[in-house]
């Protein structure tokens, strides 16, 4: 019996495929807004959600998605109101989330082993009902991330311009935060809450080594995310280690290879096509050759009788059919 015939592996692979698509999709927008660590903050908050689920006996996926959305909304509101800068807002929720989670899990009487499956992912724990939730959420994230692409791109690229173009910037920002929260929950079972942010950021960073456009970065990042997830899950099954760690290590290895290859390619391109002169120089006066009038004894002044001619910032004097201009202690031919 191969691993592809095992039902839990089939579920894990489907979950991995969707995680690999949706995490880099939303991650591209987060990286563009320079909020790369937002996924990490939300992941920490979701720990509290999971613990809440374990404590109350409800499905942890459900409580995690609710708490993560609440946390992401809070981050966005704190950031938008300017009460604290983006990174401080993240830090506040970061610590609150992880501390609350550990506290509640302790109260629920669950050990470190249960917590670990949520922190670093676990192949065997994707239940059929989990899978439905994961599929539904991931499809919703992808539809929004692709369908509202131009709007989200504009908001992340230049928020002020987006506002003047009439976009509902606050709503779109909130949408990004909520999508990030949903993605964290989607990824919780395969990559785990502590490492989900890596899957949002690393494929985007890898794709950037070769891409020039936002669209190609988005698509390449998704392809890399899927590859890392599926390869990571298969490796994890064979080596019997937590899938989250394998997926992230593979994604990072991809980044290292791409960074080295990217540097080599760029260097080569640079050698083949040196930078052209960027701008024609317009309006820069060409310095005139400096010709000193030899042995000129006469000192010109406005009353010397030689006609004075204004020449830019100085005055020339007409002397035997050519021009003389004062230069320090001597006269130049102009």
């Amino acid at each position: 019996m191969t691993m592809f015939e095992l039902e839990f592996m089939q579920r894990a692979l489907i979950a991995g495929l969707l995680t690999g698509l949706s995490a880099p999709a939303i991650g591209t927008y987060l990286v563009q807004r320079r909020l790369s660590l937002m996924g990490d903050g939300i992941g920490h908050i979701a720990i509290t959600g999971v613990a809440l689920g374990l404590l109350t006996g409800t499905a942890p996926v459900l409580t995690a998605v609710l708490v993560a959305i609440a946390g992401a909304t809070a981050i966005e509101l704190v950031r938008a109101r300017g009460k604290a800068s983006g990174d401080v807002a993240l830090a506040l929720l970061f610590y609150g989330g992880i501390a609350g989670g550990v506290l509640l899990i302790g109260l629920a009487g669950q050990g470190a082993a249960t917590l670990n499956t949520y922190l670093f992912g676990s192949l065997t724990t994707v239940s059929p009902s989990d899978l439905y939730v994961v599929v539904g959420l991931a499809v919703a994230v992808l539809v929004v991330a692709i369908g509202l692409g131009p709007q989200l791109f504009a908001v992340c690229q230049d928020e002020e311009f987006a506002r003047v173009t009439g976009l509902r910037v606050q709503l779109l920002n909130l949408l990004i935060a909520v999508m990030a929260a949903v993605t964290v929950t989607v990824a919780m079972r395969t990559v785990g809450l502590l490492l989900v942010s890596a899957l949002m950021v690393v494929p985007v960073a890898t794709a950037q080594q070769f891409t020039r456009s936002f669209r190609s970065t988005f698509l390449t990042a998704c392809a890399l995310g899927v590859t890392a997830c599926l390869a990571g899950i298969i490796t994890s099954y064979n080596a019997n280690v937590a899938p989250g760690a394998t997926i992230v290590v593979l994604a990072l290895a991809g980044f290292v290879v791409a960074a080295i290859a990217g540097t080599l390619v760029r260097r080569r391109r640079g050698v083949l096509a040196p930078l052209p002169d960027e701008e024609p120089e317009i309006g820069v006066p060409v310095p005139a050759p400096h010709v000193v009038s030899s042995a000129h004894q006469h000192a010109h002044d406005p009353k010397c009788g030689h006609p004075a001619v204004e020449h830019g910032d100085h005055v020339d004097y007409v002397h035997d059919g050519h021009l003389h201009a004062a230069h320090g202690d001597h006269w130049d031919e102009h």
């Binding site: 563009q32 790369s36 369908g147 173009t165 985007v204 456009s213 936002f214």
Partner: peptide, 22 residues
């Protein structure tokens, strides 16, 4: 921004005031 974008992509975001969603 934090992700590469082409000249055409940036310029086309100027059309968003006229574009419908999706």
């Amino acid at each position: 921004g934090g992700v590469p974008a082409t000249v055409a992509e940036v310029v086309s975001s100027g059309l968003l005031s006229k574009r419908r969603l999706f």
